[in-house]
Amino acid sequence: MTTSNPAPPPPRRIRISLKDRQFAGLFWQIVVVGITVAIVAWLWSNTVHNLSVRRISTGFAFLGREAGMPITDTWIPYSPKDPYLRAFIVGLANTLRVAVIGIVLATVLGTIIGVARLSSNWLLARLAAVYVEVLRDIPLLLQLLFWYVLMQGLPAARAAWKPIEGVFLSNRGLILPSVPIEAGQLWVIGAAVIGLIAFHVVRKQLTARQLLDGRPRRIWPYALAFVIGLPMLTSLALGVSWTITKPELRGFNSVGGLTLAPEYFALLIALVTYTSAFIAEIVRSGIQSVHRGQWDAAMALGLRRGFVLQHIVMPQALRVIIPPMTSQYLNLTKNSSLAVAVGYQDIVSIANTTLNQTGQAIEAIAIIMLVFLTISLGISLFMNWYNARIALVER
Rank of each mutant, 00 (worst) to 15 (best):
T2L: 11
S4F: 08
N5M: 05
R12S: 12
R13S: 10
K19A: 10
D20Q: 11
R21E: 10
F23H: 13
A24I: 01
G25W: 08
F27Q: 05
W28Y: 14
I30C: 11
V40Q: 01
A41C: 06
W42P: 01
W44L: 10
N46P: 01
V48Y: 03
G59A: 12
A61K: 06
R65Y: 06
P70W: 02
I71D: 02
S79H: 10
P83E: 05
Y84E: 06
L85N: 05
R86D: 10
R86P: 04
G91A: 11
L96C: 04
A99D: 07
I101F: 14
I103L: 06
A106M: 12
A106P: 14
V108W: 15
L109T: 08
T111F: 08
A116L: 14
R117P: 00
S119K: 14
S120D: 15
N121H: 03
N121P: 00
W122H: 07
R126F: 03
A128W: 03
A128Q: 06
A128D: 10
A129P: 01
E133R: 08
E133S: 09
R136F: 02
R136S: 03
P139G: 05
L141G: 06
W147N: 04
V149R: 09
L150E: 02
Q152C: 00
L154K: 08
R158G: 00
R158M: 06
K162E: 15
I164T: 14
G166K: 06
V167S: 06
W187P: 05
V188K: 02
G190V: 11
L196S: 09
A198V: 13
H200T: 15
Q205A: 09
T207C: 01
R209A: 14
L211I: 08
L212Y: 09
D213A: 04
G214W: 13
P216G: 04
W220S: 11
P221T: 10
I228R: 07
G229P: 08
P231Y: 07
L236H: 02
V240C: 12
S241R: 09
T245K: 04
P247D: 13
G256L: 05
L260S: 01
A261V: 05
F265V: 06
F265Y: 09
A270V: 04
L271W: 03
S276Y: 01
F278Y: 15
I279C: 05
A280K: 04
S285Q: 02
I287Q: 04
V290Q: 11
H291Q: 05
D296V: 07
M299Q: 09
G302N: 07
R305L: 06
F307S: 11
Q310W: 10
H311A: 08
M314A: 13
M314V: 13
M325C: 03
T326P: 00
Y329L: 14
L332R: 10
T333K: 03
D346W: 04
D346E: 15
D346F: 02
I350T: 12
T353C: 00
I368V: 14
I368G: 00
F382L: 12
M383V: 06
N384Q: 11
Y386D: 01
L392E: 14
E394L: 01
